Amino acid sequence: MRGHLSSTYLVALGSNRPHHLYGRPRAVVHAAMEELAVLGTVTHRSPIIATAPLGAAQRRFANAAALVESELDPEAMLAGLQHIENGFGRRRWRRWGDRVLDLDIVLWSEGAFAAPGLQIPHPAFRERAFVMTPALAIAPAWRDPVSGRSLRHLNARLTRKHPRP
């Protein structure tokens, strides 16, 4: 469903499996950034970074973030992102497993949102450097609507050295 006003989404992108057309995960993420344009206007793209595997995943990830201005409401944006994932061959069979493409809504300019299968802000983004680092590159002043802290501040909390006992 289209709304009448445009809002901005911070979308996290990740891949750790090659794609038969696009090649290695870094190229998959680059192609997916271009594909986001079907959902709105991509105004900013972060650099693509390499990150360690997480959970059951066996391969290193390529991760990035993009800002997308769109008239889509959050549920329609999620459906659009899932459509893109499916077009890249995403199969949802194992949590934390290897995947060709993973697209997540991290933040929304309208604040917090909750619906079945969707929570904005993304519940785990504050603890994930592979999301925070690319997001920080394109939206350091964006404030988390839950904590009120900027991405710059949240990243500082995430990356600070903890004193040893």
Rank of each mutant, 00 (worst) to 15 (best):
W93S: 12
V29G: 08
I48N: 03
V68F: 05
R45A: 09
D98P: 14
R149I: 09
A64W: 02
L21S: 12
P140Y: 10
L81I: 01
H44V: 08
R24E: 15
G23T: 08
V11P: 02
D104R: 02
D102C: 07
M33T: 07
H30V: 02
E34T: 11
P165K: 14
A129H: 00
P116T: 07
V68E: 04
W96D: 01
P74Q: 03
F113E: 08
L81A: 07
W142E: 13
E75D: 06
D73E: 15
A129S: 02
A64S: 11
L13A: 01
Q119S: 12
A37V: 11
E75Q: 10
R164Q: 15
N86H: 13
L13W: 06
N16I: 01
R60E: 15
G23R: 08
D98V: 05
L10W: 06
A79C: 01
F88N: 03
L136K: 04
D73C: 07
L103V: 01
G111Q: 06
F125V: 00
V28W: 02
H4K: 13
Y22R: 12
R26E: 14
E35C: 14
A115D: 04
H44D: 12
L67E: 09
A79K: 10
A79F: 00
S15F: 06
F88Y: 09
H153S: 14
R143K: 14
G97W: 04
P74S: 04
E75F: 05
A31Q: 11
S46Y: 07
H83F: 01
A27R: 12
H44Q: 15
I138E: 04
R59P: 00
A112C: 09
R164L: 14
T51C: 14
D73N: 13
G23N: 06
H44G: 00
R160C: 14
M77D: 02
G80W: 04
N63I: 03
I48A: 06
H19Y: 05
L54N: 01
R164C: 10
H4Y: 12
E110C: 03
S7A: 14
A65K: 01
I120A: 03
T51L: 12
A64D: 02
R91S: 11
A135E: 05
R17A: 08
T159E: 14
D144A: 14
S7N: 11
A56F: 13
R157I: 00
P74Y: 02
S70W: 06
F88A: 06
D102M: 12
N16P: 10
G111F: 05
A50W: 08
A37N: 15
V131I: 00
D102P: 08
A137M: 14
M1P: 11
V11Y: 05
A76P: 03
W142L: 13
R152P: 00
G87A: 15
L78H: 04
G55W: 00
A115W: 03
A137S: 15
L158F: 00
R24A: 15
A124Q: 07
A124H: 00
T41M: 07
L39E: 08
S147H: 13
V28M: 01
R94H: 08
R90M: 11
N155F: 13
G89Y: 10
P145R: 09
R160T: 09
V29S: 01
A62M: 06
A31T: 08
M1N: 11
A112V: 10
N86L: 07
P140T: 10
M132V: 00
H44K: 15
A12D: 05
S109M: 02
G3C: 09
